[in-house]
Design a protein around this nucleic acid. Structure first.
Lengths: 259, 259
DNA sequence: AGCAAATGGTTCATTATTTGAACCGTTGGT
DNA sequence: ACCAACGGTTCAAATAATGAACCATTTGCT
């Protein structure tokens, strides 16, 4: 692994529940030498990717990441566009909605929206990191990913988040084939019990799945009619989002609801 | 300069008007060896900081920057908070407003809002990079920055964007003292002719100026009354933004409008 | 108060990585 | 058919990264 990758890997230890990390923590988490971490963080700091607290000297993500994100948004406005799509989809379905992006080994939540129509709802954090195999979003992305990439993900240890999580690679391959039939994935309690989640893939300009749009509802509220509402709304919203970021679905993506 | 800094420097060549950059362009822009750039970009790509187009193989900023920005926003919500503040400030003043962050050598626009009340308005891009010495935002930040930092900025060549730009370091030091008197800076045509811009600094938790909030109006519309409206609105909005991101102004910051 | 352990930070000889000139194979223009 | 520019690749030489041991403060415990 090159030096640059090591430095960037240090950034990945920031998480919603760990927004500040000290030097020793980073050393332990990364397994690198303390002097190495210190120097790398120093370079990241010079470039504005992290900043250091005055008192405790813990590292935080710096303003430079906002600048780069604004720049990325200027060319491919996923965030700003998805915010509107999420709002509409939440209003339409009455449930919590979110968009996620597929990364090398994990799926990352980018943004979410709640519906005010129910007191009980699935709660979310932005910037959450979740697994491919246990979430409807992850499965939606995998279903339209390169076969090699799928195998790479399935070759890693698959954690059982709940008793409902699919952990057998063959079960997952079967599931992915089913997802491809309809262009839509769903999971019941496989990431968190009592949560029934539906997702559709979002495609980029190169017709590859870059992320997913999902609706997460309490399982208790999921009637067949509600499910049909969600599926229809999700299909429409997904197509809209794909289109509005300049992407297009692959030729084999189901355009209509299959019989 | 360490390897990591070199890699991160490559990211700085992305700009609103250059969202895709090829290998040769990067080599020229950075002055580094082509093989070096290639390897560094490869590492940045592996970590998701950039991605490559299928056809032309040009590099774009990758989805990882969105993830980091979402993470930073979760702990210090400048962006989401400032959006609301900007909206209100634009409605109140009837002019274009924007927030910027102070960086090592430049000032970067993060977000902006327009007012619908006039047909002519100052137009903006997000993620624009501008100079410290020629903008009201830059001067507002400098006025509350460490003296060493001010000297560092003033020791570099100061470009005259227009005939009105202050380029003599002594003139700028005098200007900064005047800004400290009122806690508010303004420039008339020093970045772009015909634009009259007002700005207040935004302070972080450590009471240092991290950025600025600004109102940019066509010079032709700037009457003494309009100016007073803007100053008052800007002071209130700046205090609100500083407060809502968990920051506080330094002890010597003028709290009330001076006599 | 006094101690022990953990923290951030620093040093410097050893080591491993980065570097750059020259080299392919392709593509697009004339 | 040519030339120039592109992305990508190679390998010996040069340089930068590394890690064990060290110091100074801070924190937590008795």
């Amino acid at each position: 692994m090159g030096t640059v990758s090591k430095a960037l890997k240090l950034l990945s230890y920031f998480a919603p529940d760990r927004t500040e990390v000290g030097l020793s923590d980073l050393t332990r988490l990364s397994g690198m030498n303390k002097a190495t971490v210190y120097r790398l963080m120093g370079e990241l700091q010079e470039s504005g990717f992290v900043e250091q607290g005055e008192s405790d000297r813990a590292y935080r993500l710096g303003p430079q990441v906002l600048h780069l994100a604004a720049l990325r948004e200027a060319s491919t406005p996923i965030l700003s566009v998805s915010r509107r799509v999420l709002r509409e989809l939440s209003d339409e379905t009455g449930e919590t909605t979110h968009v996620s992006l597929g990364h090398e080994t994990h799926v990352q939540t980018l943004s979410h929206a709640y519906s005010p129509s129910h007191a009980t709802k699935v709660t979310m954090d932005d910037a959450q990191t979740v697994t491919y195999h246990a979430t409807s979003s992850g499965l939606a992305i995998l279903a339209y990913a390169d076969p090699e990439f799928v195998e790479q993900v399935l070759s890693q240890p698959l954690e059982a988040h709940t008793s409902m999580t699919l952990v057998d690679p063959n079960d997952i391959r079967t599931k992915l084939a089913a997802v491809r039939e309809t262009g839509l994935s769903d999971t019941l309690g496989s990431f968190e019990l009592e949560v029934h989640s539906h997702a559709v893939p979002i495609f980029g300009a190169d017709r590859r799945a870059i992320g997913a749009l999902a609706v997460a509802a309490p399982a208790s509220r999921m009637s067949p009619e509600q499910q049909e509402t969600i599926r229809a709304a999700l299909r429409r919203a997904g197509a809209a989002l794909t289109h509005r970021i300049g992407g297009s679905p692959p030729a084999d993506y189901p355009q209509d609801v299959p019989a």
